[in-house]
Design a protein around this nucleic acid. Structure first.
Lengths: 234, 234
DNA sequence: TAGTGGTCTAGACCACGGA
DNA sequence: CCGTGGTCTAGACCACTAG
């Protein structure tokens, strides 16, 4: 279970950027220098650097060098943000109550979303999410057992996305489908509202850096308590 | 000025996916097979494949193979798309009925959104938008008179965004706020639904390449007829 | 066990940018 | 000119998945 060399190189450079040793616009060591520093081949260095370019930490300029591209405040505007991260940004306290964790066989829909075989086992987690103790979201999460061998409550204690990036792999993108729906009896009960109230229904599939979906989640947000902000580029 | 080999490999595979030769879930040739087909080294093949993984066309499964991840409808929707463009993508016919065009003085809210002085004159356009003749959206558009000296119906005949890019300037980004709301008497009438039905309310501010907002629009979409698809990057 | 993708090496030549 | 990143080769061993 040891980490590949290029991951280590990625992490040390990322640290130098995040703790301010490398500032925005700084030129970092050339690829040839890094091969000597880490005593690896140039392709390994390039793999590490290109990953950091894709993550937005660096940019390259042929003939000149590789430079730091890091402006803390502009980061993560158009990006995936989990509920917890979003609540923190609005100075609210996020919490959640897990209703159930169980292993089920993937239905047709779930297997299609997660790109796995139908009948393959997945974890199904139901929970209610609160902002400042007001129920805001009822959520059903499906996680493939091949990626999450075991799922415990503590995974969901903090930011789930941060947990995944620390312990599984980098998250690259997610696809969301957003609809407006009526709550209906069932969800109304969970969210403590009337059955006719509108909900924001968001279906999410999130993907790792190898392109594999690791999460299919159905979220039902209270229309009176939650909105999505989205920045789209032309 | 000749293209690198890995780009060519990328493009041929992308074409096979986009023209339907390769379908969603299909396994493509293994990396070793591709090295022989294109007569290149494996690293070159891997570069091409990994780029396609990052673009969301493929996903890899260690020990199994590389698979197609492509669902036509979900493509390119991370970007700004106007209603017309979106309808065309789903093979529906977009049309609209203009209810009114008038010049008003900007309210506090409007001036804040469009970054203009309060009391400055703006065009206010109300219209209903149809997909295959079903009313889908009631929309109020505010356009600053300084950017649009005169506003006529024909501006809205085709894609408004295309009109702007042809005649005004390039559009760079837009910010959307998405909520779920109950229709209420007024909007229900326009959209031919019941007053308790849920709507997707989207407030949009779009900006030109000089950073100036040129449009503030409030859209009320029928929850039963419309959804937003969004692709977000981490 | 055979085949897949994941990691890595030790070279090579090229195109670009700056002095 | 020299140093930079961009492309590419021809191998190698490993870890995972399936039969």
């Amino acid at each position: 279970m040891k980490k590949p060399v290029y991951k280590l190189i990625e992490e040390t450079i990322k640290k130098r950027i995040e703790n301010g040793t490398l500032k925005n616009g700084d030129m970092i060591e050339s690829e040839n220098e890094l091969t000597e520093v880490y005593n690896v081949s140039r392709m390994t260095v390039r793999l590490a650097l290109n990953n950091l370019v894709n993550e937005g930490y660096l940019y390259k300029h042929k003939g000149k060098g590789t430079f730091v591209n890091y402006t803390k405040l502009e980061k993560r505007l158009d990006n995936i943000t989990g509920f917890t991260e979003q609540m923190n940004q609005s100075d609210m306290t996020a919490s959640s109550k897990i209703l159930s964790i169980e292993v089920i066989k993937a239905t047709e829909l779930i297997s299609k979303k997660l790109l796995i075989d139908s009948e393959e086992e997945v974890y199904k987690v139901e929970r209610i999410r609160y902002g400042d103790n007001i129920p805001i979201c009822y959520e059903i999460v499906y996680l493939p057992k091949t990626i999450f061998p075991s799922v415990e409550e503590k995974i969901f204690a903090g930011s789930f996305y941060e947990y995944v990036e620390k312990n599984i792999a980098k998250i690259t993108y997610c696809t969301q489908k957003i609809e407006a729906r009526q709550a209906g009896e069932n969800y109304a009960k969970y969210l403590e509202i009337d059955a006719e109230m509108p909900l924001l229904y968001v279906s999410v599939v999130s993907n790792l850096d190898n392109g594999r979906p690791f999460e299919y989640t159905r979220c039902f947000y209270r229309g009176d308590q939650y909105c999505l902000i989205r920045r789209a580029l032309r």
